[in-house]
């Protein structure tokens, strides 16, 4: 079984590559849709901006690859921005212009900016950066095998996902508001946090994706 890691100029892939190597999962990095279409699974990371990421995906023809892969029911794992732009749209626009950035639309939903607010009389800082806990909303799901409820994972983001269907939500996190930090629809699983940077718990969670048979 070979996993393709999608490279679309959306930040550093080193930690994902290292994590898969450590887990002993056979993987290759590519930005070529033809090559990636031969993979059994795809990991779709992302650290960048929603609009820039979508531009790069289209330019490389990777938007069609992802849609095709998803329609064939082959497993895809979205991480961080990769979990956001599988939805219909994002409020993250170039230079913060009004409107939305149209995204891949594999899963019905939208992406919104985290509100800056006050908690205990101090402002909530955005980006939401650091270790926060994930409440498991689907106990017993194979992607959570070996993971305790309210385990901490590493987050870095300013936007959060809001899928339309609440039944697909895997996990939620509290930061000013409670928002969705994991969901699964058909063969697509998505985590807002970075399992590859979340220590041993993160590696266990990441490993579960490769044993998952959607």
């Amino acid at each position: 079984m070979r996993t393709g890691i999608i490279d679309y100029d959306a930040g550093n892939l080193q930690s994902v590559v290292s994590a898969l190597r450590r887990l002993g999962r056979d993987a290759f990095v590519s930005s070529d849709p033809q090559e990636l279409s031969k993979a059994d699974r795809l990991v779709f990371p992302g650290d960048g901006h929603a609009a820039t990421s979508m531009e790069s995906l289209r330019r490389l023809g990777l938007d069609e690859l992802l849609k095709d892969f998803f329609q064939r029911g082959r497993p895809i794992l979205g991480i961080c921005v990769g979990s956001q732009i599988v939805l219909d749209s994002s409020d993250e626009t170039p230079e913060g212009r009004p409107g939305v950035t149209p995204c891949l639309g594999l899963v019905a939903g939208t992406c919104h900016r985290l509100p800056k607010g006050e908690v205990e009389a101090r402002p909530l800082k955005v980006p939401h950066m650091g270790w926060n806990t994930v409440r498991i909303e689907q106990p017993g799901h194979p992607l959570f095998r070996g993971i305790r409820d309210e385990s901490a994972f590493y987050f870095v983001h300013s936007f959060y996902t809001e899928p339309v269907k609440s039944s697909i939500v895997l996990g939620t996190t509290e930061y000013g508001l409670r928002f969705v930090t994991g969901f699964v629809q058909d063969s697509l699983a998505a985590w807002q946090f970075h399992p590859e940077k979340s220590g041993e718990v993160g590696l266990t969670l990441l490993d579960n994706f490769f044993d998952w048979r959607p």
């Binding site: 080193q14 290292s18 994590a19």
Partner: peptide, 11 residues
């Protein structure tokens, strides 16, 4: 840095 990135799975 490269060796750390291969071994340590935190930021």
């Amino acid at each position: 840095v490269a060796r750390v990135a291969q071994k340590i799975f935190i930021p």
